[in-house]
């Protein structure tokens, strides 16, 4: 299982990469391993407001339907439309091409509630 340094993680297994005031969001390698074969991604809508801890999208594998929870609040300014045709990018490259959305961070203080990579790795091990 891969955990990338420098990213923030939610307990629900989303990762956040902060650049400027923008958060790129995806799901972790642990999450994609648990999901296994991703066959469908319901993307968030561009322009909508994401709210920390609330559902912003859905990932489906053959056997399961899982919510993607927004790790930070803010306006969704971009979504990874490639996932509509290639949902398997989430399995193949969860931290790269499998990113899900970009959010304009509303409140930087929310980032403090997220986990660092070492802490996150520990949470996964306890599963």
């Amino acid at each position: 299982m891969k955990v990338v340094e420098g990213l923030k993680y939610s307990k629900d297994h989303e990762w956040v990469k902060v650049e400027g005031g923008i958060a790129t969001i995806g799901v972790s390698d642990f999450a994609q391993q648990q999901l296994t074969d991703v066959v469908f991604v319901e993307l968030p809508e561009k322009g909508k407001q994401a709210e920390q801890g609330k559902t912003m999208g859905v990932i489906e594998s053959v056997k399961s339907v899982s919510d993607v929870f927004a790790p930070v609040s803010g306006e969704i300014i971009e979504v990874n439309t490639k996932l509509s045709d290639s949902p398997e990018l989430i399995n193949n490259d969860p931290y790269g091409e499998g990113w899900i959305a970009k959010v304009k961070i509303k409140d930087k203080a929310e980032l403090d509630s997220l986990l660092g990579h070492e802490e996150y790795a520990k949470t996964c091990e306890s599963h």
Binding site: T36, D37, V62, K63
Partner: peptide
């Protein structure tokens, strides 16, 4: 067992 590797494979 629901799968060993993954369902599609």
């Amino acid at each position: 067992p629901v799968f060993y590797t993954n369902v599609i494979d």
